[in-house]
Design a protein around this nucleic acid. Structure first.
Ligand SMILES: NC(=O)c1ccc[n+]([C@@H]2O[C@H](COP(=O)([O-])OP(=O)(O)OC[C@H]3O[C@@H](n4cnc5c(N)ncnc54)[C@H](O)[C@@H]3O)[C@@H](O)[C@H]2O)c1
Ligand SMILES: NC(=O)c1ccc[n+]([C@@H]2O[C@H](COP(=O)([O-])OP(=O)(O)OC[C@H]3O[C@@H](n4cnc5c(N)ncnc54)[C@H](O)[C@@H]3O)[C@@H](O)[C@H]2O)c1
Lengths: 236, 236
DNA sequence: TCAACTTTGTGCACCCGTTCACAAGTGCCT
DNA sequence: AGGCACTTGTGAACGGGTGCACAAAGTTGA
């Protein structure tokens, strides 16, 4: 139970955490699994099972104490300590990331911004001066960087990643549209805009197809007391 | 088989597609499941099963014809037609998205940029003039927008989403850190920076814990980034 | 104190996705 | 033509995640 929280659960904990902090800001002291599940967009049973992996932090007949649960989830996710992040590639996306307040607000500190372009190096973005990418190893070592964010064009991504890994970084967040190759001691997560849009396009297309084929026979359905076998929407 | 491709497969098709187009640019005519799987970062058995859902497009003893497979996957994903996208919220992130070339290169057209701030409206970003958010309904109707991208601050996201849905948009890509409520005819996918970092932090923490408790281990568990199963707002 | 009510935590059955292993199909070489 | 080497497509076993349903645990009110 303490041993190994399922990946699917870990992926949802940040969502619960956000819902809980919102509730805390609104002054809510306790919350039931039903309410919290609704706020997080999941089923209540799933939520309870997820939370049960961390321990028994709820009170039967009452619910969960918001503050306490926030602390427990934060601790489980490792957010009680400060994680240092380095952003490599300060172009369009890098600028947005550097200016993003959501980083700092959750225990992440941007340790440095790195770029290969001389015209960008020296510029101040989000309160930090952009440094040359040659400083990468130095920055990682001196600042004790844990997480590397890759926001360079695709061709440079693998190279940058290799340098991050060689310098000792064991977690990488990749925005470039390439599959990064890393040793299995390193964890990579990818954020891919194009992929997301293409998945949406797929469902959009299927929905259009359904509309065309169902629109006419929709009346036939009315004749047959078939029950709703028609799978309506595709959603979460 | 033709009926309903598994969500997990759909989430991987864009990855295969990108690997294939890269191969095509390099002049590769055919590719085996083993090679393509390596390029896409998955197992070969999984790749073959995924592709088998689209049909039998391979040749035993040879592999897959790159060009043909590109076409088939593109068609399945609905990329043979042009999808019109509207971006709402042209701040840090919206600017980056508007300037991003990866959109257009894959059959997506940015139909309009919308913002509520008078200082931003009228500005030209990525070749488009930012329009007032009041034009939302008009833009969606006139341009036949299919996909809405929400890049506003969290408090405005649900409101913007509601307007998009009311205007007829059935696919939403959400960057704001909130759970959007939509009717189940609408599909929402979420891209959440903070969540990704928090998942990395969790594994980083576990890795540190492992190093301390078992100081012999050169080997730590390696995990694969999810698919959106998306999660995604659905995630998966 | 006790009964009625609320809500958690979980055993269980089910479903989806992954992985293995191999028969069947294809090209090549002799 | 026939054997050989290679690769696809898939049946089947497996594993993890999801949702249901309910007993256990706690609260409230009389
Ligand atoms: N802009 C977006 O909205 C968006 C969306 C999804 C994905 N992406 C991806 O994110 C990445 C960055 O996108 P962008 O729009 O910011 O591109 P960009 O060209 O604006 O910025 C890239 C930056 O990386 C720097 N760079 C190049 N090589 C480098 C190296 N070896 N080391 C360090 N820095 C280097 C460049 O100088 C530049 O400043 C790309 O891979 C892109 O495909 C961008
Ligand atoms: N910047 C990042 O790297 C980043 C990363 C992850 C998530 N996000 C999220 O993306 C969203 C946008 O981030 P940002 O950094 O671009 O913020 P931003 O404040 O720079 O931009 C937000 C823009 O939305 C506009 N806006 C506000 N209300 C609106 C409304 N009702 N209709 C239309 N437009 C409206 C504002 O005028 C502003 O231009 C936020 O929710 C943020 O949490 C940003």
């Amino acid at each position: 139970m303490r041993q190994g929280i399922p990946d699917a659960t870990v992926a949802r904990l940040p969502v619960y955490l956000r819902a809980l902090t919102t509730l805390a800001e609104d002054g809510t002291a306790t919350v039931s699994s039903e309410e919290l599940a609704a706020a997080a967009g999941v089923g209540s049973a799933k939520l309870r099972k997820d939370l049960s992996h961390l321990g028994s932090y709820g009170t039967r007949g009452v619910g969960y104490e918001v503050e306490y649960l926030v602390y427990q989830i934060s601790r489980e996710l490792g957010l009680t300590q400060d994680w240092r992040v380095v952003i490599v590639g300060v172009g369009n996306l890098g600028h947005a990331l550097a200016n993003y307040g959501g980083f700092v607000s959750r225990g992440f500190t941007v340790a440095a911004l790195l770029d290969a372009d001389d015209r960008i190096v020296g510029e101040t973005v989000g309160g930090l001066v952009v440094r040359p990418v040659d400083d990468l190893e130095e920055v990682v070592a001196e600042q004790g960087v844990h997480i590397g964010v890759v926001a360079t064009p695709a061709p440079a991504a693998q190279d940058v990643c290799d340098r991050l890994v060689a310098a000792g970084v064991t977690s990488v967040l990749n925005f470039a549209p390439v599959v990064l190759l890393v040793p299995d001691t390193v964890m990579v997560r990818k954020v891919d805009l194009s992929t997301e849009l293409q998945i949406l396009a797929f469902h959009e297309q299927r929905q259009v197809a359904n509309r065309l084929s169902v629109d006419v026979p929709a009346r036939v359905v009315a004749l047959e007391p078939d029950g709703g076998t028609g799978r309506a929407g595709v959603s979460p």
